[in-house]
Design a protein around this nucleic acid. Structure first.
Length: 589
RNA sequence: AGUCACGUAGCUCAGAUGGAUAGAGCAACUGCCUUCUAAGCAGUUGGUCGCAGGUUCGAGACCUGCCGUGAUUACCA
């Protein structure tokens, strides 16, 4: 269906042409009237004043008269200070509510049937997930949902960084210090167990470095020559040579981690269509090397290493193959990116990866373009800011992190406590509690612009009051409760009713839902939608708590029906909107 | 040093394409529950939108310079 704005655009242009005589040469500024001013749709006259040396008030009156005469939905207009505000007829508002409630305007459709792949999460397998990962996952999920809702086919993919020096560190420390500790015999979640030995390694390593420094080594040398570091590199070589014993340990420990991740993913309702393993893809880049050399995009240096010159693009020379013939991160990503386009029918690819890798992806995309891949323009690095603590960055190596599982558990406890204190619902299930705690956490992370850093204070943590997921969920459960109590009225048809300013404002917000979803997807920003949903919830609560007559007691049946339908519609939009953020709604609170 | 982000109320953040008097939440204070759910509503206090120029009828938004914060520029991933 067409929005009110879309309906009025033609007649407004017509009116301006009629009054001013100017055709096609100007673009009018037409918008929904701001809350503080009376009216529904506004035409900004100021730009016209520049062209015509007429009094804007006079011009506004002429345009207003023309529009009123030629549009059936306009009731009146008012000129204020360079702005022409239009008010619609009561019957239009009734019709609008009817259309919004019954039409397909909530199920956004699109002719764009393109397939988009999004890579997110993609953790290392040497430590458990933390709050930074949660931000990534929650963003990835929401952006996937947003694109689905505007008609794209979305493929969600993660690549598990399951090999390399980092996992060797955990393996070595486990071999040395664990005494055979397993998730089974310790009761510890697998990823936490492996993470424990990663921290273990770092501690032992730091001690060795300090000892060496005390013996007079300089720090750089000490870091390189610490015995335990030597051992790790030996372990990595054994892994790459396919040593069976090492591979068995590697598989065992990775499996512990996967069991752990699986549990956390389930807690967060996160899932993927495909999972890649770096151990399967890390060699893929090598064929790109040959291709690049053949096309003279890459070049050899004397020691046999392979490079690409990106200085013209404002970057540096980047290494693609070490002198010893092994691939680096960039090479590997070239390989996996090409493979994705060959293996899956995708039109574009989004990498949801932290802002610290901006440079990496810039280089990656430029190289692919240089290699002549036509889809290189369809690559997008969705970079997001990191989650910081009051003490600064989170540091996994030192164990200074907000652990994902701990946080989820803690939030669940708080939700339980508050629910109990308020004492309204006594039979809350663990699923209900999860809906609340997850809603609060996800909304907290999604309401801020992805590209901005998030400051997370564990002391104050995530709120359940104010601009929160909880607030929106609460608003929804109020509406559901109302709906249950007023079922009889809800089924009746809408009769003409003259809506209040608050009610018109709700309609104004509601009808903008599809365009907000679209803008949210286009800008890769669930925050846009989150803030819209909050505004809707707030306006609903304002309306709900300030109507003079309770809806279900209202003797004026037309008013009651209008209000009830409006409320139900608000509830539906709140629910759909939060669904796109990956947040569920409770029926009661 | 180069490149790229960000800088809005004490704190955390909105301000989609330049438009009316810059908005929320938290914190502080004041009212409102014999209830269509008070996890709420209404109100008070709180701003030289980092600074300085420029473009424009109009700039928090765009351009230039500066300051501040962060990321990055690894034969790490």
């Amino acid at each position: 269906m067409k929005s009110t704005l879309e309906r009025l655009i033609p007649v407004l242009y017509e009116a301006v042409t009629h009054v001013t005589g100017i055709k096609n040469t100007l673009s009018l500024v037409i918008q929904y009237t701001k809350k503080e001013f009376p009216g529904y749709i506004t035409l900004v006259l100021l730009p016209l004043m520049k062209i015509l040396k007429q009094s804007p008030e006079k011009m506004g009156n002429q345009i207003g008269k023309y529009v009123k005469k030629h549009s059936q939905i306009i009731q009146s207009f008012r000129y204020i200070n360079g702005f022409l505000n239009f008010e619609c007829t009561d019957s239009y508002y009734n019709e609008l509510l009817k259309e919004l409630s019954s039409s397909n305007f909530l199920t956004t459709t699109s002719s764009d049937k393109k397939t988009l792949m999004i890579e997110y999460s993609s953790p290392n397998t040497n430590k458990p997930l933390h709050l930074g990962h949660i931000r990534n996952m929650v963003l990835g999920h929401s952006i996937s949902e947003l694109f689905k809702s505007v008609g794209k086919k979305v493929i969600k993919i993660q690549i598990l960084n399951d090999r390399g020096i980092h996992i060797c560190k955990s393996m070595l420390a486990w071999n040395k210090f664990s005494g055979g500790e397993t998730p089974e015999n310790s009761g510890m979640k697998g990823d936490h167990l492996v993470g424990k030995y990663y921290v273990c390694f770092e501690k032992a390593y730091r001690k060795e470095v300090n000892d060496l420094c005390a013996q007079g080594f300089d720090e750089k040398k000490a870091k390189k020559e610490a015995p335990i570091m030597q051992e790790v590199h030996q372990l990595l070589r054994l892994w790459e040579s396919g040593d069976e014993k090492i591979l068995a340990l590697w598989k065992k420990m990775n499996n512990w981690v996967y069991q752990g991740f699986k549990k956390t993913y389930r807690q967060l309702d996160i899932n993927f269509d495909y999972t890649q393993y770096e151990s399967n893809t890390y060699l893929l880049g090598k064929r790109v090397i040959e291709e690049g050399i053949k096309k003279k995009v890459f070049f050899y240096k004397e020691d046999g290493s392979v490079w690409v010159d990106l200085t013209k693009e404002g970057l540096d020379e980047k290494l693609l193959l070490r002198a010893n013939g092994t691939a680096v991160y960039l090479t590997q990503d070239l390989g996996t990116t090409i493979e994705r386009f060959e293996k899956y029918p995708i039109d574009s690819l989004i990498f949801l990866v932290g802002e610290e890798q901006k440079y990496h992806f810039r280089a990656l995309f430029i190289i692919l373009k240089k290699l002549g891949y036509v889809w290189a323009d369809k690559l997008f690095h969705l970079s997001y800011g990191m989650v910081e603590l009051p003490s600064g960055k989170m540091k996994s190596r030192e164990g200074i992190v907000v652990d994902a599982d701990d946080l989820l558990e803690q939030m669940n406890q708080v939700a339980k406590k508050i629910t109990k204190e308020l004492g309204k619902v006594h039979d809350y299930s663990s699923t209900d509690l999860k809906t609340l705690s997850l809603g609060a956490l996800k909304y907290h992370l999604l309401k801020v612009d992805p590209k901005k850093r998030i400051m997370f204070n564990p002391e104050t943590s995530v709120d359940f009051k104010g601009n929160t997921g909880t607030y929106i969920q609460y608003t929804y459960s109020r509406i559901r409760s109302l709906e249950r109590k007023a079922m009889a009225i809800a089924s009746k048809n809408i009769h003409p009713y003259s809506p209040s300013e608050e009610e018109k404002y709700l309609l104004k917000i509601l009808e903008q839902y599809p365009s907000l979803v679209k803008s949210s997807a286009e800008n890769f920003s669930p925050a846009i939608l989150a803030n819209y949903i909050y505004e809707l919830a707030k306006s609903f609560n304002d309306f709900y708590q300030n109507v003079s007559v309770k809806i279900i007691q209202d003797k004026n049946l037309d008013q009651a029906i209008f209000r009830l339908k409006l409320s139900i519609l608000c509830g539906e939009v709140l629910k759909l909107g939060l669904k796109l953020l990956g947040i569920n709604m409770p029926e009661r609170m």
